[in-house]
Amino acid sequence: MNKERFGEIDVAETLVRLEGVAKSYRRGNQDIAVLDALNLNIERGDFLALMGPSGSGKSTLLNLVGGLDKPTRGSITVGDARLDQMSGGQLARWRAHHVGFVFQFYNLLGVLSAEKNVEVPLLLTKLSKAQRRKHVATALDVVGLADRARHKPSELSGGQAQRVAIARALVGDPDLLVCDEPTGDLDRSTADEILNLLQVLNRDHGKTIVMVTHDPKAAEAARQTLHLDKGKLVEAQGVAA
C-alpha cells in the first residue's frame, strides 16, 4: 500500500485531497452506494491511473475530482478550493480555470473547426480575440496538430480528434487534467501516441493527470495506479513513467 497516497504521511505538495468521501445515488426507493469513506491524496505533478471493474466507482471518483459532481459525504479539496462546499455556479467557474477534461469519445463540437473547439474554454476568460488565437495556436502546437487547425472533427482521425480534445483541455493552462478512458476508442498504436503525449504533458509541462482506464497498457504510462473495487481503493502500484 502507498501510505503517502492514502494520507497517512503527507510530505509532497498535495493538489487533490479527498477525506471520508462517500457518494451514493438514489434509484427508486433505494440508495446505491458507489464510493464509501474514501481517503486519497494526489500530489501536484502526479500522473495517476484509476483502474477497476465496471461499476467500481472510478468514473464517479473522476467526476468528483473534476468538480462535475458533489459527494454525499466527506470533503474534496483541490488546491485551495473546497469542491464539496461549492454551489453549481462556483463549481462551473472553478472548472473553467483549474481543470481540463479529456473524454473517451473526444466530445468535440462537430460544427466547429479544431481551432474553434480548442478556443471554446477561452471564451470563458477575459482574453482578447488575438490572445485567444495565440493560446489556441500554442495548444495545437503542443499536441502536434498546428497544421490541422481548420479541419472539422469529421475530417480528423480518432487520434487527431483526441489530440484536439487534449489541446482543448490544455488551452486554459489548468492545474489538473482529468481523462476518462482517453484511449478507449483508439487502436493500440494511436493509443500509445496519446499516452506518450499525456506523459510529455505530465513530465515536461508539470500537469497533474488523473486518468480512468480499463487498459493495463495505458495504466503503465502513469506514475501510479490505483485500483477501485466496490467503491473502495484496494491497491496501489508504483510505475515508473
Binding site: G89, A92, R95, F103, N107, L109, V120, P121, L124
Partner: peptide, 16 residues
C-alpha cells in the same frame, strides 16, 4: 445534449 454537457463540463454555467 451531449455537446451542451461538454460545454457545462468545460465551465459554462447553466445561465450561459
Amino acid at each position: 445534449i451531449g455537446e451542451l454537457a461538454v460545454l457545462k463540463t468545460i465551465g459554462f454555467s447553466g445561465g450561459s
